[in-house]
């Protein structure tokens, strides 16, 4: 196994983990959501890079016998996943706004402090 032939996955994993870290370590709700987005977008990179074919072209059929196309299936899946992601983000942001209105803050620490008393 050629070590360098997997760098795409490894970078994607590094990116995923930065996003994941922001989600669980940050106390700011909006930043958490941004982290979530980075996390998901990096998963998308993982999927898409798995669909790459050396010397391939985008999967739009052309006349010609032996054209090498990239794998279209990951693209379809990720299109769906992107949409799901934006739906989640919109909902999360709307919640963040309501939380700000109800608590006056979007920091987890402040919110906890208010709920304890």
């Amino acid at each position: 196994m050629d070590i360098l032939s997997h760098y795409n996955y490894w970078v994607a994993i590094f990116l995923m983990m930065t996003g994941f870290y922001v989600v669980i370590a940050s106390g700011n709700l909006v930043k958490k959501l941004i982290g979530l987005n980075v996390f998901q977008a990096s998963v998308f990179i993982l999927y898409i890079s798995a669909g790459v074919v050396d010397k391939g072209v985008p999967p739009i059929l052309k006349e010609g016998a032996s054209i090498l196309y990239s794998n279209p299936l990951p693209h379809v899946l990720i299109l769906t996943a992107i949409v799901v992601g934006v739906g989640t983000t919109a909902l999360g942001l709307a919640l963040a706004i309501r939380i700000k209105e109800a608590y006056g803050s979007v920091e987890e620490d402040d919110i906890h402090a208010q709920e304890e008393d």
Binding site: G51, I60, H75, I78, L79
Partner: peptide, 8 residues
């Protein structure tokens, strides 16, 4: 785009 996923 570089990975041929133009739609995405």
């Amino acid at each position: 785009v570089a990975m041929d996923a133009v739609d995405v």
